[in-house]
Design a protein around this nucleic acid. Structure first.
Lengths: 195, 195, 195, 195
DNA sequence: AATGAATGAGATTTCATTCAT
DNA sequence: GATGAATGAAATCTCATTCAT
């Protein structure tokens, strides 16, 4: 029961925030679309910001778990990146609103300790990609490069493609772009890093 | 005189918005840091949003003019991209706050007709890059590819690198990253698109 | 059972209200500290205000009973006042939180019929003291005076001393002040009213 | 102009807070009765609490200035107390609402640094009276006593009398009580402290 | 053209109270 | 009797915008 409500709020917030942006997504609106009252939101979240943080937290955890899983399969760098990207695009494909948020809602924190999970997402993922790249370089799978920079560029490119895809009006086009994007990007990036 | 004030507001707004984010940057704060009064801002801008739009407008114009200039020099695709990127990173290097805004402040519009210039920037530049790519493909300089997608990824990668660079604490590191980023990225992207 | 729960709520509420003030003492907090649920509070009290009223009611009853008892002993005014004060300070000494509430939590009622018991306490006690004073005047034990005014001042003085005492940090100091305060005050007041 | 508005808010807040109590006195209500808008209040005060603090601050300053003035006249303790009380009751007589607030609105602070001025008032005045008493003892004007305790009781007594007076329904009765209270109390207290 | 006090709609958050289980 | 999730009215505070000076 408890988890159902929190989940309901998370899912509704994703829809509303994707549509209106975090700032214009009022708690009243989220509550209304979820069919609950404002007060209920605050039984599950400390603040409006905490909702956004939770949205990122859930996705960050999903990706981290997935990483740990494929990490144990001793794949090549290319295979690893391919799987990560495919997983990511598949998730976005199933929930485009989520993609919009992950790629776009990065509010500037004013007080410290605000939006820490979002920062973990925004910095943690490129850092992880950078580590993979370094390993690939060491194993001779790709040429030496400034791995932080390249990882950052790859992450930013993926986010932009996500926004591009979810911005398509037709669901079909959206799905099509996302389906092919993983391969196209991995090809592009890998050729760019070939020895 | 008129242009001086408007320019003063634009430059101050860049500083304040970069520091606090668009939403937390109040008109009072911008006025205070510019040494003028709120009322004066509204003599030059219709609204707070119009300031952000103007910031993007100025940068969009600068880049469009630059494009038209190098367009007439019949350069190779690689040379063109190299020059575009170098110009962009040089501008950010001289005004990191501006870079933060261009890469991060993309508010979701609620009413139509809001933030149109920002959209022009966010969609126009990838579109232009896509056209360059198509030409490069036609001229046999790069392999065939989904030019819209690749252009989007390139643009997103650049934005992410800009954010990465301006996020460095030391001015030296910032400058260093930006100086080398253009070459590193063009190399990465071009090799990725080689025949 | 029924009385045990009500008593538990009363005692816990005294602690919480003394610490946070009536307004900041939430029903959730009281319930949590009592180890029960909010709903249970409402099985024993009509409202949050009713808890505060009940706290005053209990103390008012205790004092009234005590009065009636010593009333039958035909004591001198001085002895009576001495006993009343000693009894009061002893109670506060045993439960300082209670003292803080009796001396400080006098919420302004908005609707009529709210906090009537608190008013009975705040007005009834000075009135009673005034009657005692009038009797003392009649019996020639003290000089004629504006008994209402003096009774009010005495009551206010006692409340202030209670707050002063319970505000001491160390329990020892608290006890010491309260132990001596009764005599010191009665001496002060009585000399002030001597013929 | 600026001071006029702040003064208007202070005076209106005194009326509204006296009537409803600090907690029930909403900023909306204060603004409405002052004929201004809520926003204006916040141009002059950081928070609702700051209004109450300011009310106490103004009165504290008035009294401190008065003290310093009569301090230089080398009066006897009795004369000093008489003048202090007379001044206080005269002020309350002219603005009964103010008296109610000074004697009653002592909210429990939750965060540190809240309501510091109110505490300065509540603790500073008794402390000052205590100093006067110590001097009187030294000069042989009154008998030795626990000066802190007696000062506290005197202050509390005065506050209670103020509340008693402003609680009278008719303005005449209010004025009458306050006019005679100073003398009656000083007589009472002084006789109580005679050698 | 510049000012900045005033505005007030609107946002977030709290919390006493209810009621189905 | 006990529970505690749900409620939603209400409160504080913010800030883009206006307009008389």
């Amino acid at each position: 029961m408890r988890e159902n409500k929190k989940e309901l709020i998370r899912e509704t917030a994703i829809k509303v925030i994707a549509e209106l942006g975090f700032h214009n997504a009022t708690t009243d609106r989220i509550a209304a679309e979820a069919g609950i009252s404002v007060g209920t939101i605050y039984n599950y979240f400390r603040s409006k910001e905490a909702i956004l943080e939770y949205i990122f937290q859930v996705e960050l955890d999903l990706r981290r778990n997935y990483w740990e899983k494929i990490r144990q399969e001793s794949l090549s760098l290319k295979e690893e990146l391919q799987m990560l990207l495919t997983m990511h695009f598949k998730a976005i494909s199933e929930n485009p609103a989520l993609g919009k948020i992950l790629a776009k809602e990065h509010p500037t924190p004013i007080h410290d300790g605000l939006f820490t999970t979002i920062n973990e997402f925004l910095e943690g993922i490129p850092t992880y990609i950078g580590i993979l790249l370094d390993e690939g370089i060491e194993r001779g799978e790709i040429r030496p490069c400034n791995s932080s920079l390249i990882a950052t560029a790859m992450f930013g490119g993926v986010s932009a493609v996500v926004l591009y895809a979810v911005g398509r009006d037709s669901a079909q086009e959206r799905a099509y772009v996302l389906q092919h994007a993983a391969n196209e990007l991995v090809e592009f990036y890998f050729q760019g890093l070939a020895m």
